[in-house]
Nucleic acid binder design. Sequence first.
DNA 1: ATGGTTGCTTAGCAA
Length: 290
Amino acid sequence: MAVQRPTAASASSERPSNSEPDLSGTFMIATWNVNSLRMRWDRLTAWLADKRPDVLCLQEIKIQDADFPALELHGVGYHAIAHGQKTYNGVAILSRIEHGSPIDVQCGLKDGDPDTEARLIAATIPGLSLRVASVYVPNGQVVGADKWTYKLRWLQRFRSYLDRELRPDQPIALCGDYNIAPADHDVHDPEVWRDTVICHPDARAALQTLCEFGLIDTLRRVHPDGRIFTYWDYRGLSFPKNLGIRIDHILATAPLGERCRKVEVDRQARKGEKPSDHAPVQAWFSRIPG
DNA sequence: ATGGTTGCTTAGCAA
């Protein structure tokens, strides 16, 4: 019996688009909604050791600042800053120690409205000449609810924040859980998700307005036609059935986005015991001179 | 069949 061996033709049909890009001289930014830092601590540290991201943005850390394990993260090679609260929400930015201590740290939207929910932290990473934000956009629960109104309002406020605090001609990465699937091919079944808080035209328009600041959806740029997901509900075997949606995004201004070489979702991190319901998104960029 | 899972907090909410 002849053993079927992969040929050059069959190998290329597995990967039709192109060969692996050369990632030498790049740095990697990742974003991961961990759904509780405490519950995900062992997974997180294993992932950091394995992937060694230069920057990692976390969401839903669900931990107060006083309890945030900055020392422990420093022990595994990362500076870490957090904007947290008890029980809900909470965001953080980790950066490799070699890139220097994050500076110009900003928490919240800084627009005078009461900032009762910890959903935004931003900082500059000196060694990468880069500003980074970790973002957790409100889910909105159900269209028409108070939380839905709050989601749309929060997105408006975030756009104002960009206009006020950032410049599209500077290299910036806005990473996080946006709770919005930009297009129908970002959900497993558009009919199931139609007019939900994830896909509603008003939510998509708000994301579009954000991007009109001058932002590139890095994954969609690298994978124009993919059905690539970042979140699968814990219920109903959604992950093994791949009933997912793409709501976690690495958005980049042009000076950064044009340097993007590769983007992928680490589905491995969604497997096994006690995963987050989100998988990490990773993006590689050519180093920025200076 | 009007469910289902997880986390935080302990009965109900949020996702």
